[in-house]
Write a protein that binds this DNA or RNA. Structure first.
Lengths: 226, 226
DNA sequence: AACACTTTTATTGTTAACAAAATATGTCTC
DNA sequence: GAGACATATTTTGTTAACAATAAAAGTGTT
């Protein structure tokens, strides 16, 4: 567990990290009602710092709180999940554009190398959606950071990605989709390398749009029950 | 003061509201370091709920906290403020598109009526930037809500707008800009009324882009010191 | 047996005292 | 007098006890 590994900051930060990863990993399921005392014993902390962490998570939309009635993990409806991808589309489109303008050559080279490692991951971890998803997350993370747009990166990394990842575990990827996504990633990086912000934005928007359509299809097929 | 008027929710919520409005109104200036005990006496509450509120505000980016060294109001650099408008551009563009698809006819009629009242406000409150700004905020608020995109509205209303409003008070509007902005608002509403999402998105993006250019110009002129 | 009301219980919200850390102050040496 | 070290003070972080509210259980009545 990483809750002891960090240790550096304050106890409320610790609580925040623990809860956030627990939610993302699905250890705390969407809709699950969680009592404060139970959480305290589970993560070895007292209610003060815990409540501070709960407040932060609530404000980030990962928890919902009803006064005097406790908090529960947020539970997105199918349509809300789809809406999330529409937001991602425009925001990450912007991130890609700004990344094309601002990433250093070293960062771009690094990003290319990362994609190679992702390709290996896809081949090796055949079917293991977890590692594929983490590779995908890694890619988008780098673009967001590369935009040098502090607030944009903060919103993507601190809000949207956590929500998406929270549901990624139950979103079994279609066969062949990871390879296709990798190809899309490569084309985006190419556009960034050529400093073509407009193209990078276009390709990123199409990439996320494809992911959205994939999810919508699954919802219609009834494969995805939320 | 409205801190007593609400009263309904919990004490931490009260603290949150008080702090947020204080920051937005500029009573707590950007960069100002604020001590917990001082805030407690100012808002008549104890440190528990206050800390919970501070956590929420920190996670929303209105405060920055250094462990064991206190919190201070966030202070955007000129470039960060400009970046904020780039984010608004894509997000509110999306909001306008979805609003065109989803607002009810009644809501649209209401919105049109609101613009008329804004026009009166601009004429009457000649030079009083405050009321003009609030009218502008009102318009964007309605579009965000009208998108029916919960998360999008939450991000705009709960995060970005507070930051923008926080700086709007020291952003003296150029002469003639309010009238121009009103015209842009009218065209956006027209597109929404015609259910032309694509046009609404285009016009909204251009509208916010114009606002951004206006700010950039002022920064270059040295009028705006941040 | 079903409904309404009361009482109990458990959980959340709040408070104030305590511990730890960082800043500020003062003293000493060079 | 300037810099460095040690002390003191203030401020933040944490804890545990207390109060208030809401959910649950029980009781009585229709």
């Amino acid at each position: 567990m990483s809750q002891a590994a960090i240790q550096s900051q304050t106890r409320a930060d610790e609580a925040f990290d623990c809860l956030q990863t627990s939610i993302v990993k699905g250890e705390l399921a969407p809709g699950e009602k969680i009592g404060e005392v139970e959480l305290c014993s589970r993560f070895n902390l007292t209610r003060g710092p815990l409540r501070e962490a709960l407040g932060r998570l609530e404000s980030r939309g990962l928890l919902v709180r009803r006064p005097h009635a406790g908090v529960k993990v947020v539970s997105l409806s199918a349509s809300e999940l789809v809406e999330l991808y529409r937001i991602r589309e425009v925001m990450e489109g912007l991130a890609a554009r700004q990344a094309a303008e601002r990433m250093t050559d070293d960062e771009i080279a690094d990003l290319k190398a990362t994609l190679d490692s992702h390709e290996r991951m896809i081949d090796e971890a055949r079917g293991q959606a977890y590692y594929q998803a983490e590779g995908d997350y890694d890619f988008h993370h780098r673009i967001a950071t590369g935009s040098r747009n502090t607030k944009l990166a903060q919103m993507l990394l601190g809000d949207l990605y956590y929500m998406v990842r929270m549901y990624r575990y139950r979103l079994s990827t279609s066969a062949g989709r990871p390879h296709m996504a990798l190809g899309e990633h490569r084309r985006i990086v190419e556009a960034i390398a050529q400093r073509d912000g407009e193209l990078a934005e276009f390709l990123m928007k199409r990439h996320i749009n494809a992911a959205r359509l994939n999810i919508e299809k699954k919802i219609q097929e009834g494969v995805l029950t939320i």
